[in-house]
Design a protein around this nucleic acid. Structure first.
Lengths: 190, 190
DNA sequence: CCCTCGCTAGATCGATCGTTCCAGGGGCGT
DNA sequence: ACGCCCCTGGAACGATCGATCTAGCGAGGG
């Protein structure tokens, strides 16, 4: 396959980004984890580390946006279910693997403008996908945007707290609060 | 003064942590920014980079916890005011200086267990301070804990989104939502 | 059969990082 | 005035990082 190696680099890079952030993304570790030689990386990504990070972050943003669009209505209303998925991901990885967008968002933003823009685009993709779902459920336009932004922010922040404390509690607390916020914003609660 | 240099290192380290995270905290840049020679750093902090980061993070946690405890009641109810302070800090620093606790939280957690514990402690200090204030305002015990955790999570996450998008909008949206959440949790809204 | 080209494979370079080490300076008590 | 000790000042080291370069493998068309 033509794009198989390139795609594998992207997937492994997202994993490493989720664990160690942008600085911690080592190209030597990346090649080893992907089972590819060092030179192959620069063949597929001539732009080096920055291009790899941008591709991985952008790809994750599109994937997560599509996932939100494919969610059943009840999962959008009970927003807390999104947060429980991160509880699984964290406890499965010994609280190491966070969000592949949020983790490099902070330590890569000041380093590379391209990474910052990729992160902003990925967040925008997730937020707009969620806002569309909320609007379709009856939340008025700008309220839906604000609510979606708040939910994504709480999601990233709760992931940060959960990793630091090695506990699912922050994700559970924020998830329940977001569910309550969505229910309050809906025209009527069934 | 005895602890003057040590304290200056701590303050400058917090600034660099807030901008670049744990990996990005360069000891050469730190000594230069603090106006101290390279060797002084290792004199005051024999543990090197890790000890400096732990001290800076722990200090910031205590300081922010104390700040929350000193807030007037109306500022605790209108939680969004906390978020506006970060809008100022971000726009003043060209969207570079984030939270000195949240920024190293993600990229330092997998690197150093001591840093992760310091971050967890700082978050716990902020959360418990806020929970105490909410409880004093009439929010029942465990609800206050959950609410405080949600607010801190939304604060950190909104800061992350605001830095990436170079816009105050996420902090404003999350701030308003958290204010609404607090008002809904209070026994009566004056 | 051979030539071409996408891809693998890894040695290597310069820069930078955290760390260690030692030499000099200045205020304090005696 | 003298010696002690906390602190400053910076050189030097080994390790590691991202990036560059060149050589070789191997399938597919002439």
């Amino acid at each position: 396959m033509a794009g198989a190696s390139r795609e594998r680099i992207e997937v492994v890079a997202a994993e490493l980004l989720a664990r160690h952030g942008y600085h911690g993304l080592g190209l030597k570790a990346l090649s080893q984890a992907a089972g590819l030689p060092y030179g192959s990386i620069y063949h597929h990504f001539p732009g080096g580390k920055e291009e790899i990070a941008v591709a991985a972050i952008t790809g994750c943003g599109e994937r997560l946006g599509g996932m939100i669009r494919g969610l059943p209505d009840q999962a959008v209303v009970a927003t807390g279910t999104m947060f429980e998925a991160m509880v699984w991901q964290l406890s499965d990885s010994d609280w190491g693997r966070g969000c592949p967008i949020g983790t490099p968002a902070l330590d890569g933003a000041t380093e590379s403008a391209a990474v910052r823009e990729a992160v902003a685009g990925a967040f925008a993709a997730m937020t707009s996908a969620l806002a569309e779902r909320l609007a379709a459920l009856g939340v008025p336009g700008d309220r839906a945007d604000h609510l979606a932004t708040t939910i994504i922010a709480a999601y990233e922040g709760a992931t940060m707290l959960a990793r630091a404390q090695r506990s699912p509690a922050p994700l559970q607390a924020a998830g329940e609060a977001m569910t309550a916020l969505v229910r309050a914003a809906l025209p009527e609660t069934p």
